[in-house]
């Protein structure tokens, strides 16, 4: 769990997102719908983006889970966090953790990150404030930075 080992007993029906929020007080992961549509609850499980509302907590047993709270390292914002701030890619902020985690999944997956690729890659994340314009810009910026720092 965000780099630390965690053991817990959960009720079978508890969704992963509620385990994070209610049991671990990791409230950065938000809930925006009940139909696996909005992506607000997106986190990384073993490096892949998943909607934590559509996974039972018990299914996460033995996996590596990363939430928005685990993105900044040693007081340094993750490039995606910085890029969202730099590009005014958030307004109310409710979808933002999910957007950042979905973007992290896309970048981790590799492949092209053109505007179209990013837009299609965000098909499962809804934002009602920004019109996505600046979100797409922010992800392009961060993807570029992460690519160039990875090649150094």
């Amino acid at each position: 769990m965000n780099g630390a080992r965690l053991e817990a007993e959960v009720e079978p029906r508890q969704l992963l997102v509620y385990f994070l929020r209610d049991n671990l007080n990791l409230t950065g992961t938000t809930v925006g719908c009940d139909t696996t549509s909005c992506g607000a609850c997106t986190i990384l499980v073993d490096g892949k983006s998943v909607k934590s509302c559509t996974m039972l907590a018990v299914q996460a047993d033995g996996t590596e889970v990363t939430t928005i709270e685990g993105m900044a390292k040693d007081g340094e914002l993750h490039p995606l966090q910085r890029a969202f701030h730099d590009n005014h890619a958030l307004q109310c902020g409710y979808c933002t953790p999910g957007m950042i985690m979905a973007a992290a999944g896309l970048i981790q997956r590799g492949g092209d990150m053109s505007e179209d690729d990013i837009r299609l890659g965000l098909e499962g994340n809804l934002c009602r404030c920004t019109g996505y314009h600046n979100i797409v810009k922010a992800i392009q910026q961060a993807a570029g930075e992460m690519k160039s720092s990875a090649t150094v």
């Binding site: 992506g39 499980v45 998943v50 909607k51 999944g105 997956r109 890659g121 499962g124 994340n125």
Partner: peptide, 9 residues
């Protein structure tokens, strides 16, 4: 199918 998160699971 679905979206990237759905496709991951």
């Amino acid at each position: 199918v679905g979206d990237p998160q759905v496709r991951n699971r």
